[in-house]
Design a protein around this nucleic acid. Structure first.
Length: 527
DNA sequence: GTTATATCGGTGC
DNA sequence: GTCCGACATATTCGG
DNA sequence: CCGAATATGTCGGACGCACCGATATAAC
């Protein structure tokens, strides 16, 4: 019996109304028990809010604008039409994805209209969330994996998790686990040309803190570029991003280097690609390279990229993920030329580590990674085995407007427009929604509404009265803000009750900070 | 009919 | 990418 | 020793910046 979209929407509603993780897991497990076997994959993806698995390169190219257009102009349903099933939805999504070329936007919109026209208001709501990619049911990867484990009777959740991290396809993992049994998933390592999720790091404040957790650690330069996973077999080389997309065509230098410098026939390496001239270039330039599809050759000279390798996950066709960090490094040293390796030391001495941190900064890099020496490569996991250490700067800025929040922040002004003092006015340099507690959001909402000048749908302009201390990682050149500058990773550190707007930092100060970044970084002067 | 500009979606951090 | 809050579980505390 | 208070591990959700390509629309 095929599962109707109605059942899906009902379940979503239930999930949303409970905050208990255990309860959510059980509800999902129930779904997996009663769903038609060939609809398991569709159910998982819709529940996740993804049209396709990460390992699938298809995209809908449908977002907020298109969905809301289709939503408001939906056609009336035809009475005799049979009820929509999960696979029915999936097949429509496939059609939307394959539609391209002139007029495709309209076609996509029509397909959506038909889809929306066939369902009830509630079903349409959750369907739209699936398409938009934000379910807001309090269910995502972690809980779905748990429920797959629960309903498939897996002894160990880690088997399920590992299979997902290695394949990047939760629908497939669910199908295998539930239909053939979790034992079928026992692939313990990566395979060439099947990109897997990289191990991730937690942030920490200093090298001292890192050492207090790890005792002794490997410290590596943290480079501000794009994470790459390099797969090689013979002369075939493919480069994958952190989210498993194929970057091979954009990075011919990396392909060439890998082919030339890697003696092994079959290998998987991990590293960082940065834009680099005499010194590192700002991150914006890396983006230019990795999002480029046309005329890559034309940009190679202007924005050269450099590859730094920091891990090896396969050599001679054999998985190395279960070797310790230290052992993998030794294999790596043996496998690739030294000039491709990321700068690295091993120490337990805070003074030496701090000195290395300063060296990284002075050479224009982000900071350091600290890695626990005996840790295996935990595919797709984030934990305290890898720590990232960066240095933030701060500025005192003025809030000149705020935007209404969504979801759990509905009813609060939660996204703030930040400005520096500019002459007798203010110059906007970014927005932030991070750093305040719920209580502070409430307080801020009241304060801002009290000084509101103008209100539109989403934005409330306010009299500039509130000064906040804003932390950030970098100042970027901005095409969106008139000032020409923008903050990267801005977050509020403090509400400066003691400061008047006139005492906030000026745009000149900010420009000077921007310029000083080039004491350690290189810049491109383009005509 | 061709070319410039705007909008949208998807991706990196 | 960063940050906060919520839930579940582990650990410590107080009597 | 046991139940209560507190710490820790994980997950989910809230949204930022820039960039490019593809498509739609405006302007010539």
């Amino acid at each position: 019996m095929p599962t109707s979209i109605r059942a899906f929407a009902d379940l979503c509603e239930q999930l949303e109304s409970t905050s208990s993780r255990k309860k959510k897991t059980e509800l999902l497990a129930d779904l997996f028990h009663c769903v038609d076997p060939d609809e398991i994959g569709s159910a998982v993806l819709l529940m996740l809010g993804r049209a396709f698995p990460e390992s699938d390169s298809r995209t809908l190219d449908v977002g907020y604008a298109t969905i809301s257009k289709a939503w408001s102009s939906k056609k009336q349903s035809m009475l005799f039409e049979e009820e929509l099933t999960l696979n029915g939805v999936t097949s429509i999504l496939g059609k939307i994805a394959e539609t391209q070329g002139t007029g495709s936007r309209k076609v996509k919109e029509h397909l959506l209209q038909n889809l929306f026209g066939r369902v009830t208001t509630k079903e349409r709501e959750y369907l739209a969330r699936s398409l938009f990619g934000e379910m807001r049911t309090g269910v995502s990867e972690g809980i779905i994996l748990d429920s797959i484990a629960l309903s498939s009777g897996a002894q160990n959740i880690e088997e399920i998790r590992n299979a997902y991290m290695l394949s990047g396809d939760m629908s497939n993992v669910a199908e295998i686990a539930l239909l053939k049994g979790p034992a079928e998933l026992k692939r313990i390592g990566p395979e060439p040309f099947v990109p897997f999720k990289p191990m991730l790091a937690e942030s920490i404040g200093s090298v001292e803190e890192a050492l207090s957790i790890m005792g002794e650690a490997a410290f590596e330069f943290k480079l501000d570029g794009a994470r790459v996973q390099i797969h090689k077999k013979g002369d075939d080389v493919r480069i994958y991003s952190r989210r498993l997309t194929d970057l091979t065509e954009s990075l011919p230098e990396v392909v060439g280097l890998s082919r030339k410098s890697l003696a092994d026939d079959t290998a998987i390496l991990e590293g960082e690609v940065i834009a680099f001239r005499d010194r590192p270039l700002p991150f914006q330039h890396v983006m230019r390279r990795i999002t480029r599809v046309h005329d890559i050759e034309g940009l190679r000279d202007t924005v050269p990229v450099k590859l730094y390798i920091f891990d090896i996950l396969m050599r001679n066709g054999e998985s190395l993920v279960n070797l310790s960090c230290m052992d993998r490094w030794h294999v790596l040293e043996d496998a690739v030329p030294e000039d491709l390796l990321v700068p690295r030391i091993v120490t337990g001495d805070p003074a030496i580590a701090a000195e290395f941190f300063n060296l990284a900064l002075s050479e224009g890099h982000e900071g350091l990674m600290a890695k626990s020496l005996d840790s295996i490569y935990a595919v797709g996991r984030r934990g305290k085995k890898w720590l990232k250490i960066k240095r933030a700067q701060t500025l005192d800025l003025v809030i000149i407007a705020a935007e209404w929040g969504y979801g759990r922040r509905e009813g609060w002004l939660s996204d703030y427009h930040l400005a520096a003092v500019s002459g007798d006015g203010f110059a906007m340099v970014g927005k932030t929604f991070k750093g305040l507690t719920d209580e502070e959001f409430k307080w801020m909402t009241q304060r801002l509404l009290a000084t509101a000048i103008r209100k539109s749908d989403h934005v409330v302009e306010v009299k500039p009265t509130i000064v906040v201390e804003v932390a950030f990682d970098e100042i970027q050149e901005s095409p969106t803000y008139e000032s020409g500058l923008a903050l990267r990773f801005a977050r509020i550190k403090n509400i400066r009750q003691d400061k008047d707007p006139g005492e906030a930092d000026t745009i000149e100060t900010m420009r000077a900070m921007y310029e000083s970044q080039f004491k350690t970084k290189d810049r491109i002067v383009e005509k």
